[in-house]
Computed example of a mutant assay.
Amino acid sequence: MPDTSLRTLVDDLASPDPAVRDDGAYATLTRLVRDGDLPLDDRSWLGDAMVQRLRHERAEARSFAPLVLASLVAVGDLDEAWIPAVTRWFCNEQDLRGHDPELGWVHTVAHGADFFGACGAAGVGDPAALLDALARRIVVPTTFVWRDQEDDRVAHALALVLARPDVDEPTAVDWLERVRSLFASGSPGPVPPEASNTMRTLRSLHVALGEQPLQRGEPVTVQHCELVRTQVAAVLHEVTPWSWRTRAGR
């Protein structure tokens, strides 16, 4: 059983007060993990507690759990059960608020994406499953248009998974089938929020892959970068054929 201070931090991570939850508990927990100040038994207990937290009644409590799990993954800890647990929460979560005036950061989509990006950077989990989870999140029907750079965070997570050396060509682009299906189902009229979210995510990914994606400030290499960029551009062209065309000779 962990000591009282660790259990108090985990309790505070569910606080509706952003100063307690974000600036206090989250910052302290991730520092303890990063600096190696928690023994293995405590890290294991913390991971289990975060998986349980994904079922909390309040969104802001649920959404900070993947960030702590991401910090554990980054130092080499992973229980394979974490990935399907986070995937279920990530793809089914209905509260997609970014910043709330009273609660502070909820940021469900961004925090979930950070977990999958951490798995990508650490080389853990099945890359096809990680990419599919991110794709499922961006296309799921919603009434909420992302406004707090969730699209950029998902794109960054996609890039980190795509940078893994075990990603082959089919895996690098198969996740785009979910996007093609979404766009193919469209009809004239207002753009559905999920379609807007998806378009902006793909544009962010296209830009990142055209430059140098970063992990903790250091560039990573995406082996199939041009293949992914070409297919992302082709998918985006389906929804904006009046805006641009492929350069001659490409």
Rank of each mutant, 00 (worst) to 15 (best):
Y26V: 00
Y26H: 06
T28K: 10
L29S: 14
T30L: 07
T30I: 02
R31L: 00
L32S: 04
V33N: 07
V33C: 12
D35Q: 09
D35I: 03
D35E: 15
G36S: 03
G36M: 00
D37Q: 11
D37R: 11
L38Q: 14
L38G: 12
P39K: 07
L40E: 01
L40I: 04
D41T: 11
R43H: 04
S44N: 02
S44F: 03
W45H: 09
W45S: 14
L46K: 02
L46M: 05
L46A: 11
G47N: 08
D48R: 09
D48F: 02
D48A: 05
A49I: 10
A49N: 06
M50C: 14
R53T: 09
L54S: 04
L54N: 09
L54A: 00
R55S: 14
E57W: 01
E57R: 05
R58E: 09
R58L: 10
A59K: 08
E60I: 12
E60W: 14
A61D: 04
R62C: 14
S63M: 05
S63H: 05
S63W: 00
S63P: 04
F64E: 02
F64Q: 00
F64P: 03
A65H: 00
A65W: 00
A65I: 01
P66T: 10
L67R: 07
L67A: 06
V68Q: 00
V68H: 01
V68T: 02
L69S: 03
A70T: 06
A70V: 07
A70E: 05
S71V: 05
S71Y: 07
V73R: 00
A74T: 07
A74W: 06
V75K: 04
G76E: 02
G76K: 00
D79E: 07
D79T: 10
E80K: 08
E80I: 06
E80T: 11
E80Y: 00
E80G: 13
A81Y: 00
W82P: 13
W82F: 04
W82R: 08
I83Y: 03
I83H: 04
P84H: 04
P84K: 11
V86N: 11
V86A: 00
T87D: 15
R88G: 03
W89E: 13
W89P: 15
W89H: 08
W89D: 12
F90T: 04
C91R: 13
E93C: 12
E93S: 13
E93N: 13
Q94Y: 08
D95P: 06
D95G: 14
L96P: 13
R97N: 13
R97D: 15
R97F: 14
R97V: 14
H99F: 13
H99D: 09
E102R: 13
E102K: 05
E102W: 07
E102M: 10
G104C: 12
W105K: 01
V106M: 03
T108Y: 01
V109A: 14
V109C: 11
V109N: 15
V109S: 15
A110S: 08
A110M: 12
H111A: 06
H111N: 15
G112D: 10
D114V: 05
D114M: 06
F115N: 11
F115Q: 06
